[in-house]
Design a protein around this nucleic acid. Structure first.
Length: 823
DNA sequence: GAGTTTGAAACT
DNA sequence: CAGTTTCAAACTC
C-alpha cells in the first residue's frame, strides 16, 4: 500500500494505447509521457511512476515482474527521468489514496452532490485500493494511464471506453471527467453490444477495469501475450481512474466524482489482482478495506467483484472455491479475464460480455435514476462516509459497472450495488432494480454476496449524481428499478430530510444504503418495484416508479410509459406540475423522527410511532393491517393525521396505542418462540436488521424495527423476515426512507438472493423468526455466515448505523481474505 | 393468472 | 374541502 501511496504509477502502453495516452499525459502534464512499444515497465514502487509498456505478449511476461522491481529497474528509472512529472504522480498516489480515503472528502463537502460523489469515490478508492494495496501503486500507474487513456478512451473506440470508461473518467479528465463518464456510459452501451470489440478485447478491458493496476498485474503474472494487450488497455483505464482520484483535489469534485466512480470500479478490480499478487496477505486488509469501502460506496461491489476477477486471474485456477461470493465472481471475472489471461477466452468472453453489457446497461440505468435523485444526493454525505460512502460508491459503481460491463462478476456486484445506489433517492430506487441486474445479481450474489451488500450501499449515493446522465437511463432504469422495489410504494422519509423524498432517499441510501439497497437490489431486481400502469402513462403518482422518482425499467409492465429517459422533459414537467400542486408529492411518505430514532438506538424499544406517515392513511376496510394502508406499508404506526377507521395498525394505532399491535404481534411472536431472550434478540434483530441495512444512518430503521417484527411475524412471516431485513437494507437505502424496511417485506421475496449477500446480518434474525421462508433459505445458502453475523444485531440495536457498517465490514472482510489466501 | 378489493391520487 | 372517479397495487382465489 505504502508503495502505491508513494505514487508509483504504472503505465501500460500499448502501441495504440500509448499514443493516446501520451497525448493525454501531455494534457494533464503530470501523467507520464511514455510511448514505448514492446517494452513494459512494471512496477512501481512506492513513489516512482511505473510505466508498463505492453508490447503484446512478451511484455506481459515482463510486466509480471513485481512492481518493486519495476521501480528499481533501469527502465523504470529511465521512464522516471523521461517524465519529470512522474514525481507528482507519485505524490498523487499517496494523495489519491489519502484523498480517496479521506482527503477528498472536504472537497466533497463543498458541493453536496459532488461531495457525495467524492466520498463515494474515496470510499471506492479505499476499497479498491485497500483490497490490493499493491494495486495502489498499480492504481497510480493506472491513473496515469487513465489520464492519458481517459481522453483516448473517450475518443477511442468502444473498447477503450469500456475498460477505460470508468477509470478514464475518474482520472484526470477532471473537467472532462464528467463528460467522459457520460460518454463512457453511452459508450458502454454501445460496447454492450459485444460487436465493437472482440470478446477477448472486451474481457481484457473488463479486466483492466477491474483493477486497473491489477490488470497490469495480470499480464505480468500470467504473462499473457494477447490478453496482455487488452489488459494493458484496462490498466490504462484503471490508471485513469486512479489519477482522477489523486487529481480530484485539483479537479472539480464533480469531475472527480465521475472519475472516482469509474476509478473505484476499476480500482476495485485491479486491487484484487494487484493485491493478490503483490500483497498477497495484505490483500485481506485491502480487501477488508475495500469491503468497507464497498459497503460505504456500494461501488465496492464492482471493485470487489473485479478484485475477485483479478484474483481469479492470478488465481485463475479457481484457487479459492472457498470464497463463495468472491470466488464465483472471480470465476465470472475469470471468464472475462481469462481470455486475457489464458483460460477460457471463449467462455469468459461470451458470458462476460453479455453480462457486462447487461451490467453496463443496468449501471446506466442506475445512473439515470440517480440523475433524478441528484437532488437528494447531497443530503447525507456525512452519513454516507461509513455507510453512505458505500452508497456513493455504488453510484459510481453504477458508472463503473457500466465501464466494467466486461466484468461480469462485477456486474452482479455492481448491480446489486446499483440497486442499492438507486436506493439513494427515489431515483435510486429505480436504479436499484433492473431486471438485468437482478439476474446478474442472482448469479453473482452467491459468490459475492458480501460484496454485493457492501457495494450496494456504496454505490447508491454518488452515482446518481455523477452518472446521472439520463442517456443511460434506459439501461439503468431497469437496474434501478430492481432496487426500487425495496422502496416499495411508500418511501419513508426521515425528518431530517427536508422535502423531497429524493433527498431523503438518497441520504438514507447513502447513510445506510448499503444494506437496504443491496437487499433491495437483490430482491429488487425481481421484487423491485415494477409498475404495471396502463392508463397513467407512468406520469402520475399512481405509478410507483414515477412516484419514487425513478424511471421505469424493463421489468415494468407499464403501457405507454412516458417515465423514461427519453421522455425526460415530459417527466420533469409532470413532476413539476405535481409538485406545484403538492410540494411534498414526491417526498417520502413516511417520516421517521430522526431525532428520536435516528441514533438513540431505541429502535426496538421505541414505539413505531416515532415514524409516521406524513399524510396519514384513510383506510376503512383494511384496518391498517394490510399494505393497502400506506402507514402499514411504510412500517409506521398510524398517527393523528390518519383518518382511518378501525385502525389496527400493528405499528401503532392512531389513537396512540402504537405499541398495541406490535405488542400483540410481538407477544404472539414471543409465544411462538419459546425463549423470551431469544425473542428479544429476534426483535432486535428484526428491528436492527432493517435499521442497519436500511437505516443505519437514518433513524427510521430504528423505528421500523418494531414495525418489521410485526410484518415478519404476523403478516408475512417468511416475507416479513426477508422483507424487513432485506428490504430494509436494500429498500431503505434505495428509497431513502425507512419505508423500505417495511416495504421490503413484499419486495423481499424477490430480493432473496440479493439479500442473502447483503442481509447476512439481518438475515439471521429473520431466519430465526420466519426463517423458514424461502428467501431465508436462499440467504443461508448464499452465506451461512451471515446468519451468524446477525447476532450482532443486538449490539447493533444500540447503534444501528454502526451495525450496518460493521456488518458490512465483517462480511466484506471474509470475502477478501479468502481471495488473498488462495493466491 | 384472473379477478376482486382497497385506498391513494386525481378530478370535479 | 368534500365528493366522485380513476388508477394501480395489494390481495384472493
Amino acid at each position: 500500500m505504502s508503495k502505491k501511496e508513494g505514487g508509483n504509477e504504472k503505465v501500460n502502453l500499448e502501441s495504440e494505447n500509448v499514443e493516446v495516452k501520451s497525448e493525454e499525459v501531455e494534457v494533464e502534464g503530470r501523467k507520464i509521457e511514455v510511448n514505448v512499444k514492446g517494452e513494459e515497465g512494471g512496477g512501481g514502487g512506492g513513489g516512482g511512476v511505473v510505466v508498463v509498456m505492453d508490447t503484446p505478449e512478451r511484455n506481459k511476461s515482463q510486466i509480471a515482474t513485481p512492481i518493486s522491481k519495476f521501480e528499481e529497474s533501469p527502465f523504470s528509472n529511465f521512464l522516471n527521468n523521461l517524465s519529470p512529472i512522474k514525481p507528482v504522480k507519485a505524490a498523487h498516489f499517496p494523495q489519491t489514496l489519502n484523498t480517496l480515503s479521506f482527503g477528498s472528502i472536504p472537497s466533497v463537502f463543498t458541493s453536496p452532490h459532488v461531495s457525495s460523489a467524492r466520498e463515494s469515490r474515496f470510499l471506492r478508492r479505499h476499497l479498491l485500493s485497500d483490497p490490493s494495496k499493491p494495486e495502489f501503486a498499480s492504481d497510480n500507474s493506472v491513473k496515469v494511464d487513465n489520464d492519458e487513456g481517459m481522453s483516448d478512451a473517450v475518443n477511442s473506440s468502444n473498447e477503450p471506453k469500456e475498460s477505460f470508461g470508468s477509470q478514464n473518467s475518474v482520472v484526470e479528465a477532471s473537467n472532462e471527467c464528467s463528460k467522459l463518464a457520460v460518454e463512457r456510459t453511452l459508450n458502454y452501451e454501445c460496447n454492450d453490444s459485444p460487436s465493437t470489440l472482440p470478446t477477448g478485447s472486451f474481457r481484457g478491458k473488463s479486466l483492466s477495469e477491474f483493477a486497473g493496476s491489477s490488470v497490469t498485474y495480470v499480464p505480468l503474472v500470467q504473462g499473457m501475450s494477447g490478453k496482455g494487450l487488452l489488459r494493458c488497455e484496462v490498466n490504462t483505464e484503471g490508471k485513469n481512474e486512479i489519477d482522477p482520484n489523486k487529481e480530484a483535489p485539483g479537479c472539480d469534485w464533480e469531475n472527480l466524482i465521475c472519475d472516482a466512480t469509474d476509478l473505484l470500479i476499476f480500482d476495485s478490480p485491479g486491487d484484487p489482482e494487484a493485491f493478490t499478487k503483490a500483497a498477497g496477505p495484505n490483500l485481506r486488509h485491502f480487501g477488508l478495506a475495500s469491503n468497507e469501502m464497498q459497503n460505504m460506496q456500494g461501488f465496492g461491489q464492482a471493485s470487489t467483484s473485479e478484485c475477485g476477477g483479478d484474483g481469479s486471474e492470478t488465481e485463475k485456477p479457481s484457487t479459492q472455491p472457498g470464497d463463495e461470493t468472491q470466488v464465483n465472481e472471480y470465476a465470472e471475472n475469470q471468464n472475462m479475464k481469462p481470455d486475457s489471461s489464458l483460460t477460457n477466452d471463449g467462455m469468459g468472453v461470451g458470458q462476460s460480455e453479455r453480462t457486462d453489457n447487461e451490467m453496463v446497461s443496468t449501471l446506466y440505468r442506475g445512473m439515470r435514476r440517480r440523475c433524478l435523485v441528484f437532488e437528494m444526493v447531497g443530503s447525507r454525505r456525512k452519513h454516507v462516509d461509513e455507510g453512505s460512502g458505500s452508497s456513493a460508491v455504488q453510484d459510481t459503481d453504477g458508472n463503473l459497472a457500466c465501464n466494467e460491463k466486461q466484468l461480469v462478476p462485477y456486474k452482479t456486484v455492481n448491480e446489486s450495488s446499483r440497486c442499492i445506489l438507486p436506493g439513494i433517492g427515489l431515483h435510486l430506487n429505480a436504479l436499484a432494480a433492473s431486471s438485468k441486474d437482478g439476474k446478474v445479481v442472482k448469479h453473482e450474489t452467491n459468490a459475492s454476496g458480501k460484496q454485493l451488500l457492501i457495494t450496494s450501499g456504496s454505490a447508491v449515493s454518488l452515482h446518481p449524481l455523477v452518472a446521472g446522465q439520463e442517456s443511460m437511463s434506459k439501461s439503468l432504469p431497469e437496474t434501478s428499478r430492481e432496487i426500487v422495489p425495496f422502496e416499495n410504494s411508500v418511501p419513508l422519509m426521515e425528518d431530517a430530510s427536508l422535502a423531497p423524498g429524493y433527498v431523503n432517499n438518497e441520504e438514507l441510501s447513502q447513510t445506510s444504503p448499503k444494506k437496504k439497497r443491496r437487499r433491495l437490489e437483490p430482491g429488487e431486481g425481481e421484487a423491485c418495484k415494477r409498475c404495471n400502469c396502463k392508463k397513467s402513462k407512468c406520469l402520475k403518482l399512481y405509478c410507483e416508479c414515477f412516484a419514487a422518482g425513478v424511471y421505469c425499467v424493463e421489468p415494468c409492465a407499464c403501457q405507454d410509459c412516458f417515465n423514461k429517459p427519453i421522455h425526460e422533459d415530459t417527466v420533469l414537467a409532470t413532476r413539476k406540475q405535481i409538485e406545484s400542486r403538492n410540494p411534498l408529492a414526491f417526498a417520502p411518505k413516511v417520516i421517521r423522527n430522526a431525532d428520536t430514532i435516528s441514533e438513540t438506538g431505541d429502535d426496538s424499544s421505541k414505539t413505531p410511532a416515532s415514524a409516521r406517515h406524513k399524510r396519514g392513511c384513510n383506510c376503512k376496510k383494511s384496518g391498517c393491517l394490510k399494505k393497502y394502508c400506506e402507514c402499514y406499508q411504510g412500517g409506521v404506526g398510524c398517527s393523528i393525521n390518519c383518518r382511518c377507521e378501525g385502525c389496527k395498525n400493528a405499528f401503532g394505532r392512531k389513537d396512540g396505542t402504537d405499541g398495541d399491535a406490535e405488542e400483540e404481534e410481538t407477544d404472539a411472536y414471543e409465544k411462538s418462540t419459546v425463549d423470551k431472550t431469544s425473542h428479544k434478540n429476534l426483535l432486535h434483530s428484526d428491528v436492527e436488521p432493517n435499521p442497519d441495512s436500511t437505516v443505519p444512518a437514518t433513524p427510521l430503521a430504528f423505528r421500523r424495527p418494531p414495525m418489521q417484527l410485526p410484518f415478519s411475524l404476523k403478516n408475512k412471516p417468511p416475507r416479513s423476515s426477508f422483507l424487513s431485513i432485506g428490504s430494509s437494507s436494500g429498500i431503505f437505502a434505495g428509497q431513502g426512507v425507512g419505508r423500505s424496511d417495511f416495504f421490503q417485506p413484499q419486495p423481499q421475496p424477490k430480493f432473496e438472493k440479493p439479500f442473502e449477500s447483503i442481509q447476512e446480518d439481518e438475515m439471521p434474525e429473520i431466519l430465526q423468526q420466519g426463517g423458514t421462508s424461502s428467501p431465508i433459505s436462499g440467504i443461508k445458502t448464499a452465506s451461512p455466515n451471515r446468519k451468524r453475523v446477525s447476532p450482532p444485531h443486538c449490539d447493533f440495536a444500540n447503534s444501528p448505523g454502526r451495525r450496518s457498517s460493521r456488518k458490512l465490514i465483517l462480511q466484506s472482510i471474509p470475502s477478501f481474505p479468502s481471495l488473498t489466501p488462495n493466491p
